[in-house]
């Protein structure tokens, strides 16, 4: 489900079935040297998490992308979000990012780091197949977490 007004009633009513959240993490870099990569990574991550949401709509809540400036304290962001989610009853929190600086946050469980594929100039068909390949890397990780907990 999307964290969006029009879908949230269903979330509230069916909460017992929706035990997983996905948090897209996007580094904001508006500097001349970083802005292209930063925005391309944002596009990639939004696109990938949307596909994931569609696949698992009934059990997963997709948050709006969390965007933060370069020097943010990532550990702090990660744990604050986890706290909020877990206090509402979410059991599995997946963070998804292309930002390398998260790789050093070893305490953060279920951080899926995926190098951004520059999809912005691909034609729609090719882009779709590339994104589906990317999605196929993520699906088993989510299923695995679910199977381990049931």
């Amino acid at each position: 489900m999307l964290f969006a007004g029009r879908e949230i009633n269903q979330y509230i009513e069916q909460k017992e079935y929706i035990d997983t959240a996905v948090v897209p993490l996007i580094e904001l870099d508006l500097g001349a040297g970083g802005i292209r990569q930063s925005s391309a990574a944002a596009e990639y991550m939004i696109s990938l998490t949307s596909l994931l949401e569609r696949q698992f709509k009934g059990r997963l809540l997709l948050l709006p992308p969390v965007s933060y400036p370069k020097n943010s304290d990532r550990a702090e962001i990660g744990s604050a979000i986890r706290k909020e989610l877990e206090s509402s009853g979410i059991k599995h929190v997946f963070y998804m990012t292309s930002d390398v600086k998260w790789r050093s946050e070893e305490d953060l469980d279920r951080l899926l780091w995926l190098p951004a594929v520059p999809v912005e100039h691909m034609d729609p068909k090719f882009r779709q197949s590339v994104m589906e390949d990317q999605l196929r890397q993520v699906l088993p990780l989510v299923l695995e977490a679910w199977n381990a907990s049931s």
């Binding site: 269903q10 079935y17 709509k57 009934g58």
Partner: peptide, 8 residues
């Protein structure tokens, strides 16, 4: 689209 809560 699953008729429960909409997964694929």
């Amino acid at each position: 689209v699953c008729k429960h809560l909409g997964c694929t």
